[in-house]
Amino acid sequence: MKIRIKFAKYGTMKFIGHLDMMRFFQKAIRRADIDIKYSEGFSPHQIMSFAAPLGVGIESYGEYMDIEVLSMASTQEVKDTLNQVMVEGVEVLSVTILPEHVRNAMASVAAAAYSIRMKDGRFPINDLEKKLQDFYNQNTIPYTKETKKSTVELDLKQGIYELRMEPDDVIYMLVNASSSGNIKPTMVLEKFCDFAGVEIPNEACQITRLETYTDLAENEEEQKFIPLAEVGTVA
């Protein structure tokens, strides 16, 4: 049986990297005595798949991982036993049973919603709401992505599905998070700061991933984003 675990990662835990979070959950699953399925072979490992990796320093209330269990009492019990062995800053938010043949967490990620706020005070930008709107209304938002070997020219515009201000000086964005077209919130922030003519170091902002979505649209032109947790059922 495949189950999907949604969790939050915040506070000091934002400094724990993706691989270490995987190790943390492997150990937590053993502490909670979850009847997880192991792979075959000489050194069996737990069958586990994480959705989109989260950068160090970013908080999240929409992290996902799928595991395969041999047995369990109920999704509620899995959630409770896991929460008993967590640390401050990691919290299991929901556990759902996945239908057969659903794609694993990593493969199904299509988009992610983020909020960005200044750690101290407000964004140093006048007319912030209008500037953000003007920025988003551009036809293209070219971005040069530098990788180890080459530089790639991207158009961020295509991957930003929503961009707006929320109350309390918070920037909200919904962006592509699929393996082929992932957009980091820092990329959007960087281009927006250029546009607004200000300089804001990444460390001055707190970025929070709010939710991770899959796309259930039938054809490629449309988008029907729903949270990864809503694919499964509670039992």
Binding site: G11, T12, M13, F15, I16, G17, D20, K27, A28, R31, V56, G57, V85, V87, E88, G89, K119, N202, E203
Partner: peptide, 26 residues
Amino acid sequence: MRKLALSDDILMQVEKPARYIGNEVN
């Protein structure tokens, strides 16, 4: 929430910030 001795700024600059934050299981 625990308050850390080091600022986010510093922790983001160094290798393996997890060395300095505590909060480990047990």
